[in-house]
């Protein structure tokens, strides 16, 4: 391998297909023949047929690509980092958070603030926990650092609001106790995506 090839960082170009588009006509006669062949060959009707086929498919087979958004939503990747969820322990129904404060410490945009105290059994419990979503950049560090998988990123991505600062309380993010059986275990941040196998390609040696 020569050095020149090695330095070619533009790896994407190797997969390009070059189409045989021919040479543009130069003389008047060539232009004339091009016009006549294009007019007679019916290339225009191919285009007409393609859209007509799509229309028939849409109407007959219901082959529609529209997602009626507020009513139906596209599935999102489990690795997607959206509004946080607080998970519970499945056995006891207690919240998983142990109040260690790592998430508050690591939060680079300072949007998590929490307060803890000792309860009567000298166990730490969370008394205050808010996330300011006006500041949160959804970096995912809090979920990564959490030793108990208590704070995770959920699938809720509709976070438009009237104000810039939007606070979420601990209770709002906590899985409701009656929906405990629906709580999904989070394989998210750092997990492989569902189509990971397809995405694996050989790393170019030039890298």
């Amino acid at each position: 391998m020569s050095l020149e090839q090695f330095k070619n960082r533009n790896v994407g170009i190797h997969t390009y297909k070059t189409l045989d588009v021919g040479t543009p006509p130069n003389t008047g006669m060539e232009k004339f023949t091009q016009v006549v062949t294009r007019a007679v060959k019916g290339e225009l009707f191919v285009g007409l047929w393609v859209v007509m086929r799509e229309m028939i498919n849409t109407l007959v087979k219901g082959d529609v690509h529209t997602v009626k958004y507020p009513f139906e939503k596209m599935p999102i990747s489990p690795r997607y980092r959206a509004i946080h969820d607080m998970l519970r322990l499945l056995e006891s129904g207690n919240y998983r958070c142990i109040g260690c404060g790592l998430c508050e410490k690591i939060c680079i945009s300072n949007c998590i603030s929490m307060d803890t105290r000792y309860d009567e059994e000298q166990r730490k419990e969370v008394s205050e926990y808010t996330i300011n979503f006006g500041r949160c950049i959804f970096c995912g560090y809090c979920a990564e650092v959490c030793p108990e998988l208590a704070i995770v990123h959920g699938p809720r991505y509709e976070n438009a609001s009237e104000q810039r600062a939007g606070y979420s309380l601990f209770e709002d993010m906590l899985t409701p106790i009656d929906k405990l059986n629906l709580q999904q275990e989070y394989d998210g941040f750092g997990a492989v995506s569902p189509n990971a196998d397809e995405n694996i390609t050989q790393t170019p040696l030039a890298y």
């Binding site: 859209v51 799509e54 849409t58 109407l59 529209t66």
Partner: peptide
């Protein structure tokens, strides 16, 4: 018609 031809609704 344009929507159906472009696979929309």
């Amino acid at each position: 018609v344009l929507a159906f031809m472009q696979r929309r609704l």
